[in-house]
Computed example of a mutant assay.
Amino acid sequence: MTMRNHPPVPLRFLLVLLPLLAVASTSLARDFDFFYLVLQWPGSYCDTANSCCYPTSGKPAADFGIHGLWPNYNDGSYPSNCDPNSPYDASKVRDLLSSMREKWPSLACPSSDGTKFWTHEWEKHGTCSESVLGQHDYFQAALKLKKQVDVLQILQDAGIQPDGGDYSLKSIVSAISEAIGYTPWIECNTDEAGNRQLYQVYLCVDTSAAELIECPVLPRNSCGSRIEFPSF
């Protein structure tokens, strides 16, 4: 009978285990590097060719609402749809729903109660932060950060009002950075007349979703030197 030479048992296990450990280590190291907290001005969302629809609960307050809390990498890329086995579950955030309707409203058409919006945000972005934040913690963290940074009040204190007037982009960035100690990024969109307007404010947050930080990387600029701040 021919005898076959086999590697010692420990070596065989190592040959199988090492690649798995390497993948696991890389995965853990690359979960994400920071969050973008994205706050949206409803007046700019609605003042476009596509317009908007108010939530079934009624017209939101004239305030910046949460768009999302988005995990990102320092190289400008981001993870998405990380866990298809973790769907949005309203029962897990039941105690937050009232605050979510107020601070995280959907303006998409047709009118809705926000469930579709929150489902999208959790499944695309939130599932990529599950290593540190469960579903309840994810939504709660965004709400706490929104309360911590009152962007509208900061701008109004600097004389920048949502009155349809034009303001310099530099003055908007300076007002926010002086108030919070970190530089924001401003995203603009275009109204029906083709004017660039203040649409979203990006703030960077650490991986615990608790503290603001200086942004490691910013999206490309999408505003001119002067932008409109429409009413709502």
Rank of each mutant, 00 (worst) to 15 (best):
P84K: 03
H136I: 07
Q197L: 09
K170L: 10
C82M: 00
V93W: 03
Y138R: 04
S111M: 04
W122M: 03
S106Y: 11
K144F: 05
R101W: 12
T190F: 06
G194R: 08
C128F: 01
A175C: 01
S91F: 05
N195H: 09
I176L: 01
Q135Y: 06
S106M: 12
V201G: 07
K144M: 12
V205S: 05
S129N: 03
C188S: 07
G159S: 02
S171D: 06
K146R: 11
H125D: 00
S177L: 03
G126N: 09
E123V: 03
F117E: 09
S91I: 10
E192C: 14
P110C: 11
P110Y: 06
C204N: 02
C82W: 00
R94L: 15
A90F: 12
T115A: 13
C82A: 03
C204A: 10
S129Y: 01
Q200P: 12
L107R: 01
D206F: 00
T183M: 12
D157R: 07
P184L: 08
L203I: 09
L155S: 06
L169Q: 00
Y167S: 04
I186Y: 01
D83I: 07
D137M: 06
K147Y: 13
D206H: 00
R101N: 13
S168A: 05
V149Q: 06
Q156P: 14
L133D: 00
E102C: 15
K146G: 12
K92T: 10
L97S: 10
Y182C: 11
C82D: 00
D163N: 15
D89I: 07
Q135T: 03
Q161H: 15
K146V: 14
Q197A: 03
S99D: 11
P162L: 06
A90T: 11
L97G: 10
D83W: 09
L143F: 04
S174A: 07
Q153H: 15
L155A: 00
N85I: 13
D191S: 02
K124Q: 05
E178S: 15
K144G: 07
G181N: 03
V151W: 06
C188N: 04
Q156F: 09
S106Q: 10
V132L: 13
Y199W: 14
A108V: 15
E178M: 08
Y88R: 02
N85V: 09
C204I: 05
Y199C: 11
W122N: 02
P162N: 05
K170V: 08
A141Y: 02
P87K: 05
K92P: 04
S99M: 13
G181F: 00
S112C: 12
